[in-house]
Amino acid sequence: MLVHSHQGGQYCANAYRALLDQHDCLRPPGRRDECLDNAQAKSLWSRLKTEELGSREWPVFRDLTDAQHSVATYFDYYNHERRHSALAY
Rank of each mutant, 00 (worst) to 15 (best):
residue 53 L to R: 01
residue 32 R to F: 06
residue 15 A to D: 10
residue 75 F to R: 15
residue 51 E to P: 03
residue 70 S to F: 01
residue 6 H to A: 05
residue 68 Q to A: 09
residue 61 F to N: 08
residue 45 W to H: 11
residue 74 Y to G: 00
residue 64 L to F: 10
residue 26 L to Q: 10
residue 27 R to Q: 14
residue 80 H to N: 15
residue 21 D to G: 11
residue 45 W to S: 07
residue 1 M to R: 13
residue 34 E to C: 12
residue 83 R to Y: 03
residue 43 S to T: 14
residue 30 G to Q: 15
residue 32 R to I: 11
residue 78 Y to Q: 02
residue 73 T to V: 04
residue 22 Q to G: 06
residue 47 R to Y: 02
residue 21 D to T: 01
residue 20 L to A: 05
residue 11 Y to E: 08
residue 86 A to T: 14
residue 24 D to P: 00
residue 2 L to C: 10
residue 21 D to C: 08
residue 1 M to H: 11
residue 25 C to Q: 07
residue 37 D to Q: 12
residue 70 S to Y: 01
residue 12 C to D: 03
residue 37 D to A: 14
residue 78 Y to E: 03
residue 2 L to R: 12
residue 14 N to S: 14
residue 5 S to V: 00
residue 68 Q to I: 10
residue 54 G to C: 04
residue 65 T to H: 12
residue 68 Q to F: 06
residue 84 H to R: 14
residue 44 L to Q: 02
residue 38 N to Y: 07
residue 83 R to D: 06
residue 52 E to L: 03
residue 57 E to Q: 13
residue 75 F to T: 15
residue 18 A to R: 14
residue 29 P to R: 13
residue 54 G to M: 04
residue 67 A to D: 02
residue 71 V to M: 14
residue 19 L to N: 05
residue 30 G to D: 11
residue 70 S to D: 00
residue 44 L to H: 08
residue 27 R to W: 01
residue 69 H to Q: 13
residue 61 F to V: 10
residue 31 R to I: 06
residue 67 A to C: 11
residue 74 Y to M: 02
residue 59 P to E: 04
residue 48 L to D: 07
residue 5 S to D: 00
residue 66 D to E: 08
residue 15 A to M: 06
residue 40 Q to N: 07
residue 36 L to E: 10
residue 71 V to L: 15
residue 78 Y to V: 01
residue 60 V to Y: 10
residue 15 A to I: 09
residue 80 H to D: 09
residue 16 Y to N: 05
residue 13 A to L: 02
residue 26 L to P: 00
residue 7 Q to K: 14
residue 6 H to Q: 08
residue 13 A to D: 08
residue 66 D to S: 04
residue 45 W to N: 13
residue 6 H to Y: 15
residue 7 Q to D: 03
residue 50 T to R: 10
residue 10 Q to W: 12
residue 47 R to C: 10
residue 79 N to T: 03
residue 16 Y to Q: 03
residue 70 S to E: 02
residue 21 D to Y: 01
residue 12 C to I: 05
residue 31 R to P: 00
residue 19 L to Q: 09
residue 55 S to W: 04
residue 41 A to E: 04
residue 55 S to G: 07
residue 43 S to Y: 02
residue 87 L to H: 09
residue 40 Q to I: 11
residue 57 E to G: 05
residue 55 S to T: 13
residue 49 K to S: 13
residue 35 C to K: 15
residue 46 S to P: 00
residue 70 S to H: 03
residue 62 R to I: 02
residue 11 Y to V: 02
residue 82 R to Q: 05
residue 17 R to D: 00
residue 23 H to C: 08
residue 73 T to P: 00
residue 22 Q to L: 14
residue 8 G to Y: 07
residue 67 A to M: 15
residue 81 E to P: 00
residue 12 C to T: 14
residue 9 G to N: 09
residue 7 Q to N: 12
residue 40 Q to K: 11
residue 44 L to V: 11
residue 6 H to C: 03
residue 42 K to P: 00
residue 34 E to K: 12
residue 19 L to Y: 04
residue 17 R to M: 05
residue 60 V to M: 13
residue 59 P to A: 03
residue 12 C to L: 12
residue 32 R to L: 07
residue 30 G to P: 06
residue 71 V to N: 08
residue 34 E to N: 11
residue 58 W to S: 13
residue 85 S to L: 10
residue 46 S to W: 02
residue 59 P to W: 01
residue 61 F to P: 04
residue 23 H to K: 13
residue 25 C to H: 05
residue 89 Y to C: 00
